[in-house]
Design a protein around this nucleic acid. Structure first.
Lengths: 106, 106
DNA sequence: GGTATATTTGGCTATATTGCCAAATAGACA
DNA sequence: TGTCTATTTGGCAATATAGCCAAATATACC
């Protein structure tokens, strides 16, 4: 495997890794309805603000979010709304899994 | 946050987490071209077969793959090809990131 | 049964991720 | 300048993930 190809797969994994956490999914979902500041997201996620800030940094670093300071607050927003399409597929995978469980339980 | 809602986000994250690794992305990509046995995937990924087997278990457990034994070999295949749509969005995120780097470098 | 091949699993170490607290930073405003 | 509020960062402990080797399992075939 080529070194350059390897790097490409790692970059792709990095993007998905940034989404691979329940709190970060919740953040993306919330931001799909508009820009939010850190305190607002903290309310929804319900953990320490420093933790939210780190989650936001992960998503921003992956290139999924951008931020804009407004006075003393920092608003985050989705940069690439196509990530929302992921939800649909994820739901179908989960629905599929449930179906199988039901089937196997008979 | 509701206990049940929390569990839903964790289930969703589980699916994305299963994709959040370069080797597992390579596996999904390869399987998009047809079923493959573990040894074939090992060739492509280039690590210990036991490691490949564990990666496959992660993807299977998330509901993305299924397997079928044929004699002494086990063939894995994609159960929900919609995950391939992820690649397109991930590429656009990465392309976006590169653009910005170029822009900022001026 | 016994041997050979393909795959999975146990056990371990190394590394990465997560989340909190406390401290630092950044802007607003008196 | 000093103070207040919002956010980020340093540092740490707990937990999860990754990867290897060796051993176990499963199937084919003699």
């Amino acid at each position: 495997m080529d070194q350059r190809q390897q790097a490409r797969w790692e970059a792709r994994a990095q993007v998905l890794k940034s989404l691979a956490h329940p709190s970060r999914l919740m953040i993306v979902d919330e931001l799909s309805r508009g820009a939010r500041c850190v305190a607002e997201l903290r309310e929804i996620i319900g953990c320490d603000m420093s933790t939210v800030s780190r989650h936001l940094a992960v998503l921003k670093n992956a290139g999924l979010l951008a931020d804009q300071r407004q006075g003393v607050q920092v608003f985050y927003f989705l940069k690439t709304p196509c990530v929302l399409d992921f939800f649909e597929c994820v739901e179908s995978v989960l629905a599929n899994n449930v179906q199988e469980k039901i089937y196997l339980a008979r």
